[in-house]
Design a protein around this nucleic acid. Sequence first.
DNA 1: AAGCGCTTTGAAAAGGTTTTCACCTGTGCT
DNA 2: AGCACAGGTGAAAACCTTTTCAAAGCGCTT
Lengths: 338, 338
Amino acid sequence: MSATIRDVAHRAGVSISTVSRVLNDTARVSHTKRKRVLEAAEALGYAPNPAARTLLGKQTSSLGVLLPFVSGEFFSELLHSLDTAAQEAGYFLLISTSHRLRDEFRAARMMLEKRVDGLIVMAPELRPREAQVLASASEPIVFINTDAEGLPFDTVNFDNYGGSYALTQHLLDLGHRDIGIIRGPSGAKDADQRLEGYRAALAEAGLTPRTDWMVTGEYTLEAGYAVAQPLFATADRPTALLCANDYCAAGAIHAAHEAGLRVPEHLSVVGFDGLPSTLYTQPPLTTARVPIDEVGKIAVALLLDRIMDGPIGHEPVRRVVPVEVLVRASTAPPSKYL
Amino acid sequence: MSATIRDVAHRAGVSISTVSRVLNDTARVSHTKRKRVLEAAEALGYAPNPAARTLLGKQTSSLGVLLPFVSGEFFSELLHSLDTAAQEAGYFLLISTSHRLRDEFRAARMMLEKRVDGLIVMAPELRPREAQVLASASEPIVFINTDAEGLPFDTVNFDNYGGSYALTQHLLDLGHRDIGIIRGPSGAKDADQRLEGYRAALAEAGLTPRTDWMVTGEYTLEAGYAVAQPLFATADRPTALLCANDYCAAGAIHAAHEAGLRVPEHLSVVGFDGLPSTLYTQPPLTTARVPIDEVGKIAVALLLDRIMDGPIGHEPVRRVVPVEVLVRASTAPPSKYL
DNA sequence: AAGCGCTTTGAAAAGGTTTTCACCTGTGCT
DNA sequence: AGCACAGGTGAAAACCTTTTCAAAGCGCTT
């Protein structure tokens, strides 16, 4: 067993209260004893037992992270950003994934209760009414890219609407009129917002979207591939395609190549997220970069604020971080010779 | 505050010992009291306080995960696999990243001490002598893809040597004789092993590797791109290129395209890891698939075994999981017209 | 009828820390 | 000289659970 505060006290010839005071710098202690305590702690390699601290109602030094799943670059980037920010503040990340349904979230939250000082939740598919189950939590929560309308939780969202609008505008500027979209899972807030941005841009250009060019996919390579194939089967196809995210776009490009279409000569494709690897796809992908790094940093900062302030909080903070359109080689003016 | 075992006992009209016995099913309790306890616990929404349990010397229900960094698909896949396996056994993952140096590892381990029941460490760049600092740990450790020779820890490694050998053999079979390699960071065990596999295959074919075609890179897109560029600058270049991993290969392909080389017509490229997205690159990448899912599952299983068995352990287990060569369109016979 | 053993139950200790409360010892003031 | 006060210190309570130990109740055997 490792050394306890009792061992340190004994070795230093003082009471455990004094040791605690020195180590936490919580009250004045005479210089000589302070020095003895410090030496004893060093010699014994003493580290306070976190469980005992937590039991006293103190902090756990952990933040819980609830995610729907952890596949792909997006999540590793996010996790990286969260961990960096948390580590800087002396916190660990306790992660729990594979939660998409309401009950799974509730179960996970209960398990995490008492284990963490706060929760970071990303759950685009969770409706506000469903997210309500988390409201009973005693610890603070920050949502990422999730609809928390009417809920007393801070949120950090990306500008899904604005990004999608800007990407569509970019395609319109290039001269495209026949623009299709692979939207994300229906029911997911971010997918809905991106669809709205697409619609709004088309409407402003006086165009009405063709419903057969609006298909529903997932945020995966496989889905992008599978859903895009039928779109390319006939000659009556769009000249540009907005995809749910970068992965989906990569799948769509793959399908396009298989159908004998060249990108961007025959088909312009845009993604969403701005993952690092999109710079290295063939062709490099036009996309909207989500500043994942910043998102994670903000989320952790907001959460730590809540943890410090205690339960009596200010109004919920709603942050929307802008996305940046990156124009690359996957988009070009529509070819006149189809 | 949430309910404690005391509240449950009071409501059920029994002692706290009885409540504990019922909830943990640790001793016989009369039917009537059992029922009353269960009802009271349900009504109060009681959940035991993990900190108190831990303080008693019981389990923390958490596994620590130490990683050099968490960028890219490989880590998200690994994390996913670890989390799935851990969750199944009722454990959480406490992650801590950005550790590459020995002292960072030691610091992280100390912080994690007492917070987790065991540690999963991936640190290809850590030498056995350096990894020794972890040996003082009181909790069990399982290493992934790390050299732990002589250390009393279980390891789960991929067959880096065999995979690299097989990939090189594949290129030789296609007729390539001028095969270059972008090796991973020097000092990293996995990179060394892959280099050995490459060397061995060439040697068996009676070829000696050209040192100017053996360059050192990193496991990143940027590194692959940057390091590959000079290779393509002259006409005296290899007809095939073995890359440190899939990301590195994607970077190299990008560089090839920029140099006006077509893959695989002018240059065959192979990666390593077999990430899901390599199926969707242009062209789809020939690579060696590491069964990440299986690796995570095995690592967690080994760790849980150690946790259950207690410190008095059997000999360290050395698992090497085979990798599978996936032949795709990024490799072809060398063109005769350069 | 008395003792014995079994089942069921409660009291209490232990685990490591923080914090409150009380105490003690000088020092400066009236 | 007496007293208030401040600084410095230790004892003990509190946090919540598990587990050991002891006791009580009960039926059964001799």
